[in-house]
Amino acid sequence: MTFEQFANLVRIGQLKQEVPNKLEFEGLVHSGKVRLSDAHNTALNPESRFDLAYNAAHSLALAALRARGYRSENRYLVFQCLQHTLDLPSHQWRILDSAHRKRNLAEYEGSIDVDDQLLESLLRVADQLLEQVSQIKEMGAS
Results as ranks from 00 to 15, higher is better:
D87F: 13
L60Y: 01
Q80I: 03
Q17N: 09
Q5W: 03
L15P: 08
I12G: 08
A57T: 00
L77V: 07
L52D: 06
E47N: 13
S31M: 10
L118D: 09
Q14G: 04
E47L: 09
S59D: 12
T85A: 08
A64F: 00
G27Q: 08
G140C: 12
E26W: 00
L130S: 02
H100I: 00
H91S: 13
E18M: 11
L105F: 10
A63I: 00
Q83C: 04
L88D: 03
I136M: 05
E73I: 12
A39R: 07
G140A: 13
V78W: 00
L88F: 03
V29S: 08
S142H: 13
G110R: 12
G110A: 09
R124Q: 13
F3I: 07
R94M: 09
G27I: 01
L130M: 04
E18V: 15
R75L: 03
E24A: 11
L28R: 10
Q5N: 11
H91M: 05
E24C: 04
Q132T: 04
L123P: 02
R103L: 02
N55K: 10
I95Y: 05
N55H: 15
H91L: 05
S31K: 15
A56H: 01
R103K: 13
H30A: 14
D97Q: 14
E73D: 15
A63W: 00
S59L: 03
S142D: 12
H40Y: 03
F3C: 03
K33Q: 08
E24R: 12
L44E: 03
D113I: 07
A106N: 06
T2G: 11
S72Q: 05
L105E: 14
Q5E: 15
T85Y: 02
A7Q: 15
I112H: 04
S31P: 01
R49I: 04
I112C: 08
L88S: 10
T2F: 02
L123D: 02
R103D: 05
H91E: 10
N8L: 11
C81I: 06
V125K: 02
V78M: 01
H84Q: 05
L96I: 03
S59N: 14
E26F: 04
Y108W: 04
E109F: 14
A63N: 00
R68S: 11
F25G: 06
E120N: 15
V133K: 01
Q17E: 15
R124W: 02
D127R: 07
A63M: 01
P46F: 07
